[in-house]
């Protein structure tokens, strides 16, 4: 399968990428790791006229501490996120989630910024960001802004990013030692979650239970009111209306959300 023809431009800096986005408008797409975009282009589900490659911009990669938050550059690859000492120590759920993405070859290419911008509700890192209560930094023609995870994911593969904007970094709170749990249900290794659950300090996020990663607010409330993990988990699917596919129908997904939430709550580390 061969993508439709396009023009390729390697951006020289984040600013250059923004200029190119402004020049080409809707015709252009950013290319980071290419592990969501290239498969879609090979199937001709995406046919951008111009690809702006930001995948090798050093300025956009790496992990730093900034007061109470870790700041992770958008082009940090999944393998590097999973291995980063600072992330493993202070936001271990995020490092673990990165290690659950696909397989080693995919983790050597895919980036956190690409995964969040793609906003697949079944993906690992969007769910992790929601559970951690993190945010994203967005740069655009009018400057930069920070958007909380809960507001960033707006619909099925839809985010708060405008067509002329770039996600430059990801922020998560530094919380060493806070208990966390992670459950991903798959039938094949290297696959997306049929249902996923990430738990940090009483916040519960679900993958593939709706159009975006979701908070299991009813279960969170029950926990806060003193319910046992098992009792709280009974509310994990309340208010959700997940999609159906060859892997699972709606009721089975709701069942999985309850079971996986109980497991995530009962088997926390940290």
């Amino acid at each position: 399968m061969i993508p439709a023809p396009f023009e390729y431009i390697a951006a020289e800096s984040p600013g250059h990428a923004l200029e190119l986005l402004a020049d080409y408008g809707d015709e252009a797409k950013l290319l980071a790791g290419g592990h969501s975009l290239l498969p879609m282009m090979k199937l001709r589900l995406a046919t951008p006229a111009v690809l702006i490659d930001i995948g090798r911009l050093e300025q956009l990669a790496g992990v730093q501490a900034d007061d109470g938050e870790l700041v992770i550059g958008a082009t940090t690859r999944h393998a590097d996120l999973a291995a980063a000492e600072l992330v493993r120590a202070e936001a271990p759920l995020l490092a673990y989630a990165a290690a659950q993405v696909g397989d080693p070859q995919i983790r050597h290419r895919g980036t956190i910024g690409g995964s969040l911008s793609h906003a697949d509700p079944a993906a690992d890192l969007p769910m992790a960001l929601v559970a951690l209560g993190g945010s994203v930094e967005i740069q655009g023609p009018g400057g930069s802004r920070v958007v909380a995870a809960d507001d960033f994911f707006q619909g099925f593969f839809e985010t708060a990013l405008g067509p002329d904007e770039l996600l430059s970094a990801v922020r998560v709170p530094r919380r060493p030692g806070v208990p966390w749990g992670y459950q991903k249900f798959v039938r094949r290794s290297n696959d997306w979650a049929i249902v996923g659950v990430a738990v940090v300090d009483g916040r519960i996020a679900l993958a593939n239970m709706g159009a975006t990663p979701l908070r299991a607010t009813a279960a969170e409330r029950a926990l806060a009111e003193g319910a046992s993990p098992a009792a709280a988990a009974e509310h994990a699917a309340d208010g959700t209306s997940p999609g159906e596919d060859m892997h699972a129908d709606r009721e089975y997904r709701r069942h999985l959300a309850r079971v996986l939430t109980r497991r995530a709550l009962e088997h926390q580390t940290g």
Binding site: Y8, G34, H35, L38, P39, A79, P104, Q105, I106, H108, R109
Partner: peptide, 9 residues
Amino acid sequence: RSVKSCTVL
């Protein structure tokens, strides 16, 4: 690093 060359330009 290992990569899948069907998904790299």
